[in-house]
Design a binder for these strands. Structure first.
Lengths: 211, 211
DNA sequence: CTAACGTTTGTCCAATCGGTCAAAATTTGC
DNA sequence: GCAAATTTTGACCGATTGGACAAACGTTAG
């Protein structure tokens, strides 16, 4: 369990402004990284002066920290839902779908996370080696059970999870590249449905031609 | 073809020092991004004073630009090698292997590229929509030919290429997370071989249990 | 040896950085 | 309506940023 941070009493304005700042900071941090972002940028994006922003968050790091705490919760939710009970192939398929939907609907969150990891995860390393590892190990065990039961092919469950993360988050983190390569036609709104179809087939059957 | 930049005459010292700077800059840029990196950091990593560094590269951007130009060449080399002539399944398998080897041997280059894309590719957008798109379209056509010939399963060649990029580069860009989740045992030097085995199976057969 | 050229350094600069502070403006509780 | 509490702002601070520059130092060719 994490340290129980008793949420301080907050006025209506404080709640609203803090949300405004976090929204603006998500935009700025996710595209420039922590070091590459400035308080002025965030303040301007939030439509307020720098000292005013600093009235709600004392330090730049506090904003980032709050953002990361919230992120990890929603970020791991899809994996948490992976259920031992359901049909294995269906469970995996809908996990992939949920992750892809997150890449589509919350690309900034994905990029914020990617930025943090790219920079060596200096601020969330303990969470990776702790909470995240625990959850992944747990789900890897579930997947292993499915393999032993002959429900899915035997392979490495950890790398399977990595490959799902990588392929889905790619559409958020590398979105600019994806759209540039697909061009205006194929790179439009339909690209996520194309991706969903492709990934489903890849994880189901691989590339071997149907014999 | 790109603009022919006639390489200026350079002394022995200039060549050596420029390489030294680029090596140091790769280290710094790849972990901090462009905006998050400072000339001082690079100068210190290169073991020289800031004014001395600026004698070899007039502006911070010049270093990054030189780095990115070199990067793209080596970065696309594996895809260029994808050969129409060879056996399709073998060709794809060795493409995946080459990409994974690059993630293992040149993780800083991978992260440098990822950083640039994450930030919206402000400095290499033209290359993505130009040279990169052309190459990918060309190879997608090759893959489509294999599909028509029944050599591999019918699917979207562009998203297939994306999935190979995503799964392999993940082991460079998200290395910190991979090692944190795998732990000290499974996360050691063997992780790339495990990944290679897993990816081969995934792209070959998918997850459906062998009937 | 020496003059020309290439290299390195210390010093300096304006702009920007994260952050402080007191005063002014606004909102809130009664 | 008014006093207390909260919110906002302008001015300011020291540190760091990217970069300029001239002087000092090395190297090299004749």
């Amino acid at each position: 369990m994490t340290i129980s941070t008793q949420a301080p009493r907050r006025t209506r304005i404080q709640q609203e402004k803090r949300e405004l700042i976090l929204e603006a900071a998500l935009e700025v941090f996710s595209t420039n990284g922590f070091r590459g972002s400035t308080i002025d940028q965030i303040a301007e994006a939030a439509g307020m002066s720098k000292p005013n922003l600093l009235y709600y968050f004392r330090r730049k790091e506090d904003i980032h920290e709050t953002l990361m705490e919230r992120l990890l919760e929603t970020w791991l939710a899809p994996l948490r839902e992976l259920d031992d009970i359901g049909d294995p192939m269906t469970e995996l398929r809908s996990y992939i779908r949920r992750k892809l939907e997150m890449a589509r609907d919350f690309p900034r969150e994905s990029r914020l996370f990617a930025n943090e990891i790219l920079q060596g995860a200096p601020r969330i390393m303990p969470l990776l080696a702790g909470e995240l590892k625990t959850l992944v190990d747990e789900k890897a065990a579930v997947i292993k059970g499915w393999m032993r039961a002959g429900k899915i092919a035997r392979t490495d469950p950890w790398h399977l999870i990595f490959s799902i993360w990588a392929t889905t988050q790619h559409y958020a983190d590398f979105d600019v590249q994806v759209r540039a390569v697909l061009g205006p036609n194929r790179g439009g709104d339909g690209r996520f449905e194309d991706a969903a179809r492709f990934l489903e087939q890849l994880f189901l059957d691989g590339l071997k031609p149907k014999g």
